[in-house]
């Protein structure tokens, strides 16, 4: 187990290093950030000076080395726009994103598991067919558009929920969170529903497919031959086997949710890291984009690692070496 952890840790470092190279190369494409730093009426001399300060007059290799060593020292640069450390910006906005991401994930799981199990256990029933068609619609619609439709119906027309913004927050462990007050929670609902639909639809289809696969196995028939009731067989012998593969898609699910949070947060003016990224792209705020990417990469790598470990712990067949 220990050797496995070491191996995975080295892999993680390697992936992060590759990401840092890719991010650096990509950022070199975005053009010269000097113009973001200097006044519009700057003289050539001033621009030249700014370039020297930014280190842009040196070779790409030297620039990358500086970029990397700064990263390793925890120095991710300062936002051109906010004039404060970019990492701090991300950290301030992270709780808002995590809040809608986790709520969306919980909603998706709570709805998708029973529906997926039902559709997989009784694939021929009309209800299952309707669920499958519905989930296909869920996969086919643009999530941001659904958010707009929800805003129009529930905020503009029915005025049941606020249309945008975060509402009141309370501070817990240094994080500003919305879900603790009813008013704050009301602000959370529409964004979280919007975000969850795509994941919900995909999850349901995965669970259905897994369930159908599991129910074909011999041990299901053997359990029935033991004289167990169908429902008992379904839940004891079917469900657990069908849900284990879900652990492996957890990382992908989280990734998708964080990615689509950029759109959801933009529509609902939700002050999370997704909206920060989109705003920074508009403003050409390069350090913030870099930190966002490195941070998200770090998050994914860690989550994927945890997923693998969890999988090994839960499935008795898998031995980590």
């Amino acid at each position: 187990m220990f050797g496995y952890l070491i191996k995975r840790f080295i892999q993680m470092i390697f992936v992060l290093w590759i990401v840092s190279v890719l991010v650096f190369v990509m950022m070199s494409f975005t053009g010269d950030p000097t113009y973001m730093m200097v006044p519009l009426d700057a003289t050539d001399e001033q621009i030249e000076q700014a370039r020297r300060i930014l280190g842009l007059d040196q070779s790409h290799l030297v620039q990358y080395w500086r970029f990397l060593t700064n990263l390793l020292q925890g120095d991710f640069g300062r936002s051109f726009v906010f004039r404060q450390p970019a990492l701090q910006l991300i950290m301030e906005r992270l709780p808002a994103t995590l809040e809608i991401v986790f709520l969306a994930m919980i909603m998706a799981l709570v709805v998708a598991i029973p529906l997926g199990v039902y559709a997989g256990a009784y694939p021929q029933r009309a209800g299952s067919r309707a669920l499958m068609a519905g989930s296909l619609v869920g996969i086919s619609l643009p999530g941001f558009w659904l958010g707009m439709v929800l805003i129009f119906i529930f905020a503009v027309k029915l005025q049941m929920f606020p249309s945008s913004g975060r509402g009141p927050t309370e501070v817990i462990w240094g994080m500003r969170l919305s879900f603790l007050s009813w008013e704050g929670f009301r602000h959370l609902i529409l964004p979280a529903v919007t975000l969850s639909i795509g994941t919900l639809a995909i999850l349901m289809r995965i669970i259905r497919a897994e369930m159908m696969e599991v129910l074909r196995q011999d041990y299901i028939k053997f359990a029935r031959a033991k004289g167990a009731a169908n429902r008992f067989v379904l839940f004891k012998h079917g469900l657990k086997n069908a849900l284990i593969p879900l652990i492996t898609v957890f990382g992908l699910m989280l990734g998708d949710l964080i990615a689509f949070a950029t759109l959801t947060e933009t529509i609902f003016a939700w002050p999370g890291i997704g909206k920060l990224l989109v705003d920074s792209i508009y403003r050409g705020d390069r350090p913030v984009i870099v930190v966002y990417l490195m941070f998200v990469a770090f998050l994914f790598v860690v989550v994927n690692f945890l997923v693998d470990v969890a999988y090994a712990l839960i499935d008795p067949r898998i031995k980590v070496t």
Binding site: D218, Y219, F222, A223, D315, R317
Partner: peptide, 14 residues
């Protein structure tokens, strides 16, 4: 009671 052909698949692995 019944005994199945393949003992590799007749028992629930979990």
């Amino acid at each position: 009671a019944m005994i199945f052909q393949d003992p590799m698949t007749a028992l629930n692995p979990l």
